[in-house]
């Protein structure tokens, strides 16, 4: 490569000499055209690579809007978003996704409510309480939890949580004639699976922010006579607040976007989001009907995708703002 560069450089010099007599001397400053062109080409290649991500986000946004908007226009925004009846294949079809949207929101909220305390306290354990060897076992375990494929969580939910839920259901609704029995595949089961699935995300991000709290703050608190536990909950955790909040928002994104883990666990019928109802989330609604849908039905599924995409973009913007704020505080 370098030899060829030198050769081409010599040629360029030679041809320059032949062309005009004014360019006679070889300057160490400029000259090596071939090298400069390689430099330029490589820089352009790198810029193009960097813009692939930008292009991808633009393309995804454009495609989600163009595929999701038609059904929204045809059915009507109010008829779609605020109507609970989802009957796409009925003779008088109805495309209301209110229950589906509500299920996703409420399901995510409860998953956060259950998962976040466990996750944050686990992060506290790893960073503040555990001895080094113990932390060296717990932390990789959490990372492994993040690596388990979501279908495996689904399988576990289906065979471990659903039977438990069924027993609970039988006990609670014994003799009830209005309750539709779900066999345990219900909202509560899906919420539990989601709560487990957000653990690794929330633990890891909280852990990073806890570890970033200066040791001097903990020392000051201990020196003032606070107990270690008081120090954790009155000093360290509040100091790591912005990181914990970011972790929670990331957890929301993870929970609202999860599909395969809760597809079979949630029961998959469109119902009001009550704990023992069989329900359908935004994500599971898309997966379960996409294979046999067509026409307006398929477009309506893309509208569900668009609603999910809007939620995700809002969450992304919040995270971006939080991270920017965190960077300013540092």
């Amino acid at each position: 490569m370098d030899n060829t560069n030198v050769v081409t450089a010599k040629r360029t010099v030679a041809s320059n000499n032949a062309e005009g007599e004014k360019k006679m001397s070889f300057s160490i400053k400029g000259g090596n055209k071939a090298k400069n062109i390689t430099e330029l080409i490589m820089e352009i290649i790198f810029i193009v690579c960097a813009f692939v991500a930008v292009a991808a986000v633009l393309a995804i946004s454009a495609y989600m809007i163009f595929s999701g908007a038609p059904a929204l226009m045809e059915v009507g925004i109010v008829d779609m978003l605020f109507n609970p009846v989802w009957a796409p294949t009925a003779s008088t079809s109805s495309f209301g996704i209110a229950y589906i949207v509500l299920t996703s929101i409420i399901g995510t909220a409860f998953a956060i409510l259950i998962g976040v305390p466990v996750a944050v306290l686990t992060a506290v354990f790893i960073s503040e309480v555990a001895s080094k060897p113990v932390a060296a076992v717990v932390k990789p375990a959490v990372e492994l939890l993040a690596g388990i494929p979501s279908v495996v969580y689904g399988l576990m939910g289906l065979l471990m949580i659903n039977p438990l839920m069924y027993k609970l259901e039988l006990a609670i609704f014994e003799g009830s004639e209005t309750h539709q029995f779900t066999g345990g595949a219900n909202m509560a089961a899906a919420v539990l699976v989601l709560a487990v699935m957000i653990l690794p995300t929330v633990i890891n991000v909280s852990l990073t922010s806890l570890r970033a709290v200066p040791v001097s703050m903990r020392q000051a608190s201990l020196a003032l006579g606070a107990t270690p536990v008081q120090t954790i909950f009155r000093v360290t955790l509040p100091a790591a607040r912005s990181g914990v909040i970011t972790a929670i928002v990331l957890g929301v994104g993870r929970a609202i976007g999860e599909a395969m883990a809760i597809l079979l666990v949630a029961g998959n019928a469109v119902n009001a989001p009550l704990p023992f109802n069989s329900v359908r989330f935004l994500t599971t609604g898309i997966v379960s009907e996409m294979s046999y849908s067509s026409g307006l039905h398929r477009q309506a599924l893309f509208t569900i995708g668009l609603v999910l995409f809007v939620f995700i973009m809002i969450i992304n913007i919040i995270i971006n703002k939080l991270l920017e704020g965190g960077a300013e505080n540092d």
Binding site: R254, E258, V287, L308, I312, I319
Partner: peptide, 8 residues
């Protein structure tokens, strides 16, 4: 991109 769920 990192935040977009796989179903999207």
């Amino acid at each position: 991109l990192a935040g977009i769920p796989s179903i999207i």
